[in-house]
Each structure stands twice: as structure tokens, then as C-alpha cells.
Amino acid sequence: MLRFTIRRLLQVIPTLLAVALLIFVIFSVVPGSFASSLMADGRTAADPEMLARLNEQFGLDKPLYLRFADYITGLARFDLGTSFRTREPVLDVINARLWASLKLAVAAMAFAIVVGVPLGFIAALRPGSLLDSVTMIGAVSGLSLPQFWLGLLLMYLFALVLGWLPSFGYGGGSWRYLILPAITLGVTPLALLARTTRAGVLEIANEDFIRTARSKGMSEARVVRWHLVRNVMVLVVTTIGLQFGSMMGQAVVIEKLFSWPGIGSLLVDSVSIRDTPVVQGTILVIVVWFLLINTLVDIVYAAIDPRIKQT
């Protein structure tokens, strides 16, 4: 188990290098630079001399491969560069925002798991029942609702009409500010989880070994506890992992909508002023998050399913 974990963690490194290269190349070929975005006022053309001086100052006049070499050696020392805008280390800029994002992602996922998995389970145990129909219609609606629209709707209802919760902002970390963005962000994974769980339970309930369990004289409750749950978890963990991993990326819109000071809103702001080091760093963090969650899922898999450790 330990060897498996270490091996999986080591596999993250080459992926990370490839992603770093990709991000670097993409942002080097995107037109526009921090210097030109600073100068642009929409009326007069930027002074070429000024531009050249700024580019030199930020090291943007060096050839691409040299810049990449600098970037990678920096990365190896956990140095993500310096923000063009604030002149602070990118790592500090991200660090100041990361915890808000993590808090939001964890809260949203917890909401999705705690509500979605039991709903799917109950729906599957009574297929065709009213609860089943309502759950599945709800799940399809949850999947097809645009998140920002749902967010606006919740804001309108709970903040403006009912006045129960603050409409946006961080509130210095108060949990009351967390509720609306977390629910908005959690609805899609919740709907997916409810559907996956339901499908998983129905699939496993048809397996031969469930019939074997019944032929042993087990009560239905024991059949579920002893033989169904763990097999369904294998399927559910996949969905949880994929959703949790991509959540940082999805949170960009929600953070902007609720003025949540996470790395999502940092990313949007930095892209608009071409603060390339911060953009690169932020994307890298989102990718690392995704890779880590995926690795974690693989490790959880191996713990649940003995067949995986072998291969």
C-alpha cells in the first residue's frame, strides 16, 4: 500500500512538468503583454521606447527558451516568480487567496456528498417511486442549470427577498458568507453524485453475488451493508474525485460572482491585466490540485478494491 502510494505520487512529477511547459508556451504566444496593457488607454498608441524599457525590466525581452529555463529553475525552488502588478512573490499572492478557495471547494463538495449520495441511494432502493422521480428530475435540472444563474437566483431569494444570508463577500471568514457560494458550486457535483450513486446501486443490486448473499439467508439490510455499499463506493469515488478535482477551475465563475477572494477571482483579474507570472502560478495551482485529488482517488481505490493493488 505504501509502495503504491509513493509510486503514484512520483508519477505526478512528469505530468506537472509537461503542464508547466504548456502553460508557459501558451502564455508566451498569447498576443498582448503586461507592458502594453499598462499603457493602453484606448486612444493613443503606446510609446515604443517605453514599452521596450518595461519589457526589459520584466525580463520579457529575453528569448523564450531562456525564460522557460529561468521559470523551471525557479519552480524547482518553489519560486513562481514575481507579480508584475504588485511586485510581490507570486507564491505569497496565491497563498493569500488559496485558503478561501480551499474552504469553498471543501464546503461545496461536502454539501454535494452529504446530500447527493444518500439521495441516490434512497432513490435506487425504491426505483420508480415518487422520491426516485423527484430526485432524478432534480438531478437533471441541477446538471443543466448554469451555475452563475443559479447563484444569482439564490442571492436574490436568500439575500434580497428573505434577508437570511449575506449576498456576497468573504465576511472575514464567517460561515454565513460561505453558504450561498458553496451551495451554488455544489449543485452540479450533487446532481452528478445522486445519478451515479443511483445507477451504481441498481447495477450492483443485479450482480450475482447479491443473489448469493440473499441465498445465504441475509436480511436486506445486511445485504446492503455487507455487500452492496463497498461495491457502489468504487463507482461513487470516481465521480467524487473528478468533480472535486475540477472544482477549483469551476469556482472561477462563482468566486467572481460572489466576490469571493479565492484564486479563481485572482486568475480572472490577473488575466485581464496580463500579469503572466500570477496567471501561470494560479493555473499551476489548479492543476496541482487536480493531480493531487486524482492521486488521492487512486489511493482510495486501492484501499477499497483489492484488485487494483495487484496491477
Binding site: 450482480e207 450475482d208 453475488f209 443473489r211 448469493t212 448473499a213 440473499r214 441465498s215 445465504k216 439467508g217 441475509m218 455487507w226 455487500h227 463497498r230 461495491n231 468504487v234 477499497i304 478494491d305 483489492p306 484488485r307
Partner: peptide, 21 residues
């Protein structure tokens, strides 16, 4: 009674056992 007095063996040994236990 099931399992204790009347027991059953099925056709497919590959799928009749729980793979995770």
C-alpha cells in the same frame, strides 16, 4: 431456513462471489 437448511450453488463462480471481500 435459507443457507442454513436449504443452500444453493449457482452456475457462475466468477460472479457469484463478492470481488471486494
Amino acid at each position: 431456513l435459507r443457507g442454513d437448511r436449504i443452500a444453493m450453488i449457482f452456475q457462475e463462480p466468477m460472479t457469484a462471489l463478492n470481488p471486494l471481500k
